[in-house]
Design a protein around this nucleic acid. Sequence first.
DNA 1: CAGGATCCATCGTGATACTG
DNA 2: CAGTATCACGATGGATCCTG
Lengths: 131, 131
Amino acid sequence: MNTTAATQAGDLPASEDHNNCRALGQILDRVGDKWTIMVVGVLSRGPLRFNQMMREIGGVSHRMLTLTLRSLERDGLVSRTAYATIPPKVEYALTDAGRSLIEPLRVLSDWAIDYRPVIEKARADFDTRGV
Amino acid sequence: MNTTAATQAGDLPASEDHNNCRALGQILDRVGDKWTIMVVGVLSRGPLRFNQMMREIGGVSHRMLTLTLRSLERDGLVSRTAYATIPPKVEYALTDAGRSLIEPLRVLSDWAIDYRPVIEKARADFDTRGV
DNA sequence: CAGGATCCATCGTGATACTG
DNA sequence: CAGTATCACGATGGATCCTG
């Protein structure tokens, strides 16, 4: 992922479009991640505790959920609230910034739902032709 | 991925959402890829040849561009037109499906541009607190 | 010029075990 | 229950060389 600072610094001042593409690329590398989407998805319905989330999402490993949540927390998209009780209880919730991501994601979601059949057909066709 | 309880309460509350999340996750794994975004971005301005694209995007390796384009072609989002001339000439362009992706991507792009400062600040704060 | 094939370093990922 | 640390493996990306 490290595009190396060298690339960034010495790079040509292309069009503005390019900067946008870059920005989008970087942000989307975090936000467009599979588990990130899932997490935002389930949290959009309300706060959840760690293991609840793990069960809800399904298929995510303990480790990846931890990493994803930490990353989201770092980016200020998810808040983490720990209660020093026994047993410990930690609640995760979307922040305002996190909630603002729901809409764009829903747009993309709609697209995905609309075009999934199209894509799957194209894929099948392609593979058939390929054979 | 309904923000609020938009879906009927008594009706498969989680499963539907989950299928959508899954669908979105899968599609986005391809479409949300860094180079995919870049390619759609540059192609949104018009057809391009292979090496042109490589120069335009910048920082993408020969290999990754090939793989990305193949994947996009397979999914029916990009068309590939080869001219049997010498030297060979191959033009890539967005298909209708590919063009339909521009809008959703732009929405996300706008979000990324809006929130990049916020995210970067949150990140800095987080790191500072962490130290 | 387009792009396939190969080699190799790296990183993400899951499984497991351990602490508060 | 929540979270961290370690390890081992497979996937991924980059560089390079080669062909039509």
